[in-house]
Design a binder for these strands. Structure first.
Lengths: 203, 203
DNA sequence: CCAAGTAAACTATACAGTGCAGTTTATTAC
DNA sequence: GTAATAAACTGCACTGTATAGTTTACTTGG
């Protein structure tokens, strides 16, 4: 019974947030008026403004909120006693799964929409996501130190991996040019990316 | 003397087009009002509407015009008697040069801005650009037929090359996340992309 | 002369955000 | 239980601004 009852105010707030996520994704931030938004949330426009000082504030809140969910990045987990290929493949599968997550795409779509003409602000937002790329970098570093990969430029090598991945399952989805890949396609992508990377760099 | 005199009307038209290119790139399509545009072109707003029936028509005209300049794709040019690596490297350098062309980026930025919330129309526009990718495909096919590359899936293999390239010199520039690469950087990109591709697929 | 351009006012619409009077809901006091 | 009270929600009219596109009366270059 420590379960709390959500107050009415809380319910309205959630309705607004939910409607905003939906509408912003569907119509774009620019394309969604606050009247439209209030109608979707079945809430008076005044109430929207009681919860969020401005449209901008609402957008920034959503970006911040969704951003939180996407932080957790897979660990390094380099294992000196096991096959490089299967290790890398597994690591990439994890990264791919995160990137393919529709919410992750949504967030990026909204952020890009909002920031498309503010390159400075966009740069800042995107930097946050760079954190997700450190897992692979860490693994590569370990494998090089262990003498099982040739000397390489860490930035470039990990960049190559991420370009191979994102080119298939991030950019096209961001622009809705293709549907998100199925789990089977995700596995195939991890497989061939690992294969290509190791062909190039494995000792 | 067959050199023609641009009529005044022609001059005005060009001024409008020039101002539009500039303004749309700088402020975005949405962010540029027809008043602003006319002011930049030093032309009365009515004159803009005499040349272009609507803002939409102007945008579509620009997309079409710029698009024309970007079509010519490098030829196949597979040579059975020469080094694979240097051939591929050269081919990629050509493709990279096209992709890095600021006008090419501009065009895509404008198109994406305009079409971001019309996935269907965007898909159609982007398909036109797919033509640019056939050069590499043709080369790969020739090299495979010549027995100097292993069997491979053509779509996937050429996709890998283009993902490696675009991840470095298209997507980031499209979103103005980084500056266009210098010629030296372009060469390095061609070099390491060719190297990676051949590590994976060369016999 | 006249086709084209010009300036400026005008129409119509859309939208962010505010003000306010009245209503609902939840809490507290009796 | 019920009345008083505070807080949140509602509906709606309203302000101010931005912008696409039009109209009109006037000018000018070829």
């Amino acid at each position: 019974m420590s379960e709390k009852k959500p107050t009415r105010s809380e319910l309205k707030r959630q309705a607004i947030i939910e409607a905003a996520k939906q509408a912003f994704q569907e119509l774009g931030v620019q394309g969604t008026s606050m009247d439209e938004l209030a109608a979707r949330a079945q809430v008076s426009k005044r109430t929207v403004y009681n919860h969020f000082a401005s449209k901008e504030a609402l957008v920034m809140y959503l970006i911040g909120e969704l951003w939180q969910q996407a932080i957790q990045s897979p660990d390094c987990n380099y294992n000196p006693d096991s096959d490089l290929h299967s290790q890398l493949r597994l690591l990439l599968e994890q990264e791919i799964k995160i990137i393919c997550n529709p919410q992750y795409i949504e967030l990026n779509r909204m952020a890009f929409d909002h920031f498309f003409h503010q390159p400075e602000a966009l740069r800042k937002e995107v930097e946050k996501f760079k954190a997700n790329e450190t897992g692979v970098q860490c693994w590569i570093k370990s494998a090089v130190a262990d003498g099982r990969l040739n000397q390489l430029d860490l930035e470039i090598a990990s960049g190559q991996i991420h370009n191979l991945i994102k080119g298939s399952c991030f950019w096209p989805q961001l622009l809705q040019l293709s549907d998100p890949p199925t789990p089977a396609e995700q596995e195939a992508l991890a497989e061939r990316t690992a294969a290509m990377f190791l062909s190039r760099y494995q000792v």
